[in-house]
Amino acid sequence: MLVTPPRVALVSTGGTIASVGRDRLDLTGYAEIGDMRAAGALLAELPELATIARIEVVELPNVPSHALGLDGALAVARTARRLAADPEIAGVVVTHGTNTLEETAFLLDLACPPGTPVVVTGAMRPATGLSADGPMNLVNAVRLAVAPAARGRGVLVLLDDTVHAARDATKTSANRLSAFRGGELGPLGFVEGDGEVRFHHAVEPWAARGAFDPAGLGPLPRVDVVVSYLGADGALVDAAVAAGAAGIVSAGTGAGYPTPEETEALERAAARGVVVCQATRVPTGRVTPRPEAVAGGVVAAGDLNPWKARLLLALALTRTRDAVEIQRLLSR
C-alpha cells in the first residue's frame, strides 16, 4: 500500500545554509559576497526529502540573520504561526542564519502555540563549502518536524543532529559545527543516523509559550540591553531612556549585579516608568526575582539570556506594564 508522505512547510529566510562562497574552501568569507541560493535550489540537491515529506516552500527575503530586524523576525513569526495552524500541515521548518537564530527561534516559541512542530535550522558552513552541514541539517529538521514525538514541545532548534528547546538554545561557538548548546538543561534529544528521533526529556511548561499572536502587532516597544563591566557608569542606561526605551534589560555580572552607578541609573529609569529586567551576562545560571524589586518595577530574567529577555519584555509591553504579570511570563 502506497503511503502519502506528510506535508511540511519550509520557510526560507537565507543565512549560511543558503550562502555561496568563492570556492569550496571558503568557509569564512562567503558573507562578504552576499550571494544566496533559493530554497528550491537547496531542495533540488536533496531528492531524499521526497521520501520523508511533501515540501511546500514559502520564500521570505533572504538576508544575513545579523541584518534581520525586529520587523523581519515578526514576519517570520506571523508566517510560521499561520502555517502551523493549517491542519493539513504536519510540521513547519524554518531555515535561518545562525548569528541570531536563537533570537528568532525564541520569538517563534512566543508566537506559536504548542502543537504542530516548528523546527528552526541553519548551517555553520555555506552551501558550497566542502563538507557543508546544511543539507543534513535540513533533512533532519524535516524528520523532526514530522515526528509524532515532537508535537506539543514548542519550537525546536535542530543543528548537528541535536535537538534543543528554543527557550534554551544558544550559539556558543562562532565557527564549530556543534555551535549550539541547550544551557544547563542540555539537548532535548537527537536525530539518529537512521532517522529515528529520540527525546531524552520533556520541555518544561511555560506561561509565555505561544502566548503572543504577532498578526496584529505593529512595531514593538523599544527595549535596550545594557551590559555591565568593571567600572561601568550609568551613561548607557541614561542614553537608553533618552532614546525612548520602554524597557531596559540589564546584563549584570554574576547572578545579576550591575555596578553601583548603573544601579542608580536603573532606579532613575524605573522611577520614570521604564520597566527594568535584571539578567546576567554569565552564560548559565538564574537571576532570581525579588518581591521587593518587582514591587518597584524591576523584574528578573530567570534563566533567559539578555537577548531573549529583551524580546519577551518587548512583547509583554504590548499588553501590560504590570511588573507582576511580566514576571509571571518570564518565569518558568
Rank of each mutant, 00 (worst) to 15 (best):
L158Y: 10
G122I: 00
A179C: 07
P126N: 08
G182N: 00
T104I: 08
V94D: 01
G183W: 00
A165M: 12
L110P: 01
A80M: 12
S178Q: 14
A165H: 09
G186P: 00
R143K: 13
A165R: 10
R151V: 12
V139N: 12
G122Q: 06
L188V: 05
T95E: 06
A150W: 12
L110M: 02
L108F: 03
V119R: 06
A166N: 05
A84I: 07
R167H: 07
E184S: 13
D168T: 10
T128G: 01
L108H: 10
L156T: 02
R181Y: 06
N140Y: 12
S173K: 10
L107T: 04
A85R: 15
L138Y: 12
G195N: 09
L185C: 13
R176D: 14
A169M: 08
R151A: 12
I89V: 15
D194C: 08
R125N: 07
R153Y: 08
T121I: 05
L159T: 04
G91S: 00
L101W: 00
F106P: 04
T116H: 07
P113V: 01
A85K: 11
T95P: 07
R181K: 15
V157R: 08
R125F: 02
P187C: 10
A150N: 02
D133Y: 01
D160H: 15
L159M: 13
I89L: 15
V157M: 06
R176G: 11
A85E: 13
D161F: 08
L158G: 04
G189W: 03
R82P: 01
R143Y: 00
A150M: 05
D86Q: 14
E102V: 06
V139K: 14
A149M: 08
L107S: 09
I89N: 10
A90M: 07
A141N: 01
L177T: 06
G182V: 06
E103G: 05
G134Q: 11
A149N: 01
N99V: 13
L159G: 09
F106V: 04
E88M: 14
S131G: 05
R82F: 01
V157D: 03
T128W: 13
A123P: 01
S178L: 13
G122W: 10
A90L: 11
T100L: 05
D161Y: 09
L185K: 14
V118N: 04
D133G: 06
F180W: 13
I89K: 02
S131N: 14
F106L: 09
C112V: 15
N140H: 15
K171D: 09
A84K: 05
V163T: 09
V139W: 14
K171S: 00
G91Y: 06
G186W: 01
P187M: 04
T100G: 01
R176K: 15
L107W: 10
L130Q: 06
V93G: 00
G134P: 07
T121Y: 09
A147D: 07
A111C: 13
G97S: 11
P117Q: 11
L108I: 02
R153H: 08
P114L: 08
L188T: 07
V142R: 02
V146P: 01
G134I: 03
A141W: 12
P87C: 07
L158I: 11
E192D: 13
P117H: 07
A127D: 01
D161T: 05
A145T: 08
T116Y: 05
